[in-house]
């Protein structure tokens, strides 16, 4: 196999903005977001589909962007952690993680936020067990899970009130 492979044109909508790029087929989606689009909020953790730091939403579903090629996202709608905050301020989840010490080193946080967002979109009042199950694919090496769960509850409460 020659080292030269023809690039593929793709069009991807990320956080409401549409981008057109020409990419090598083996370019991973997480690298595309970080290097091509400069959206470095999505982190590369294990790079082996284990830790969930690279979690984003594709067409509303949480996926690991280290386990997708950018070409597979052609024509799809993505949301990354940069898409959470609005001009009005932080997303309730971001605010709750900040207020309840839901992050320590912050490395897993973008993935945790995106997995938690997917849960609250379909279940506005999750139990401890439901939250734990939801973030089972997100590893926090600071082991700060208790405060992450507390933060998700707090965000859920705020979102129910608003």
């Amino acid at each position: 196999m020659s080292e030269f492979v023809e690039a593929v044109d793709i069009e991807v909508t990320v956080n409401g903005k549409t981008y057109q790029r020409s990419v090598e087929p083996r370019l991973l989606l997480v690298e595309f977001l970080r290097e091509e689009l400069g959206l470095t909020g999505t982190h590369i953790g294990c790079d082996t589909s284990y830790c969930g730091a690279c979690t984003i939403h594709m067409n509303g579903a949480p996926v690991k962007s280290c386990t997708l090629f950018a070409v597979q996202a052609d024509g799809q709608t993505l949301t990354t952690v940069e898409g959470l905050a609005t001009d009005a301020g932080l997303h309730p989840l971001q605010k709750a993680f900040s207020e309840h010490h839901g992050l320590q080193c912050g490395y897993c946080t973008p993935g945790m936020l995106m997995s938690a967002k997917a849960l609250l979109e379909r279940n506005p009042n999750p139990s401890d067990k439901e939250i734990k199950k939801q973030i089972a694919g997100n590893v926090c090496r600071c082991t700060g899970y208790q405060n992450i769960i507390k933060s998700v509850h707090a965000a859920a409460a705020e979102m129910r009130e608003s």
Partner: peptide
């Protein structure tokens, strides 16, 4: 199977 991110795909 695995976690919700993997189950999505």
């Amino acid at each position: 199977i695995a976690d919700l991110q993997v189950r999505s795909r």
